[in-house]
Computed example of a mutant assay.
Amino acid sequence: MKYRHVVFIVILILAIDQTLKFWIKTHMFMQQEFVIFPNWFRIHFIENEGMAYGLKFGGDFGKILLTLFRLVAVVVGFVYMKKLIKEKYSTGLLICGSLILAGAAGNLIDSMFYGLIFNDSVGYEVAKFMPAGGGYGSFLHGRVVDMLYFPIYEGYLPNWVPFKGGDYFVFFRPVFNVADAAISTGVVAILLFQKRFFGRHMQPKPTEQQPVAKDHVA
């Protein structure tokens, strides 16, 4: 697998991620929902200012810090991928690394630019691309667009369930995007197949044996 293949995977994931986000922003209002498959898959438009799956990190300063961290991670990621290719790591690891890199870059684009190129999605208003009055935020202050929602199970838990018995429960509750899915897939696959991905490179390298001196007969 060559570096251009990594770049191709990253660009492909980015294209899918950003195309879907752009469509959501320009065709749906906040909290609008389309049922794709009843009871388990919906397109549900929300935005978040934090990490993957709606997690948050430290207010306005944390938002800037998180965006800058993503930027550094993407740059370092490309450099590290070149190193993995040069050292001939497995194709599976390189694909997983490409997925993680693409996911980080996808959410980075939202964080860096969406506040500049879209106005806010308020009430039943659909956001406009490059609005005359400017965007809803400044550079590095964009919100990440999420839309994939899989409430596979919704209902009240049995009373015998520890701590949560009788509570209303939704699985899977977080709303996420293609970039989040790419990151999660890459990370989980690396954890599951780490021995296969890293095994050959973790083997101790054989040391050169020194020639044994022979006794000289007087």
Score class of each variant (00 low, 15 high):
residue 7 V to A: 11
residue 7 V to P: 02
residue 10 V to F: 04
residue 10 V to S: 00
residue 21 K to R: 08
residue 21 K to C: 00
residue 22 F to R: 01
residue 22 F to E: 08
residue 22 F to C: 05
residue 28 M to F: 15
residue 28 M to Y: 06
residue 34 F to R: 07
residue 35 V to A: 08
residue 37 F to C: 12
residue 39 N to L: 03
residue 40 W to Q: 00
residue 43 I to T: 00
residue 45 F to H: 13
residue 46 I to F: 13
residue 49 E to S: 13
residue 50 G to D: 14
residue 51 M to K: 05
residue 53 Y to I: 07
residue 55 L to S: 06
residue 57 F to G: 05
residue 58 G to L: 14
residue 61 F to A: 09
residue 63 K to F: 11
residue 66 L to T: 09
residue 67 T to D: 00
residue 67 T to Y: 03
residue 71 L to W: 03
residue 72 V to E: 05
residue 74 V to P: 04
residue 76 V to C: 06
residue 77 G to H: 12
residue 78 F to K: 06
residue 79 V to E: 09
residue 79 V to R: 09
residue 80 Y to L: 15
residue 80 Y to E: 04
residue 82 K to W: 13
residue 84 L to G: 03
residue 100 I to R: 01
residue 102 A to R: 01
residue 105 A to N: 01
residue 122 V to W: 08
residue 123 G to E: 09
residue 126 V to A: 07
residue 126 V to D: 04
residue 130 M to Q: 11
residue 132 A to Y: 02
residue 132 A to V: 13
residue 137 G to E: 04
residue 137 G to D: 08
residue 142 G to A: 06
residue 142 G to P: 03
residue 145 V to Y: 01
residue 150 F to M: 14
residue 150 F to I: 11
residue 150 F to S: 10
residue 154 E to T: 15
residue 155 G to E: 09
residue 157 L to E: 04
residue 160 W to H: 15
residue 163 F to Q: 14
residue 164 K to W: 15
residue 165 G to H: 05
residue 170 V to N: 09
residue 173 R to F: 13
residue 180 D to G: 10
residue 187 V to L: 14
residue 189 A to T: 15
residue 189 A to Y: 07
residue 190 I to R: 14
residue 194 Q to A: 12
residue 197 F to C: 09
residue 198 F to A: 02
residue 208 E to Y: 14
residue 209 Q to A: 15
residue 211 P to Q: 09
residue 213 A to P: 04
residue 216 H to L: 11
residue 218 A to D: 07
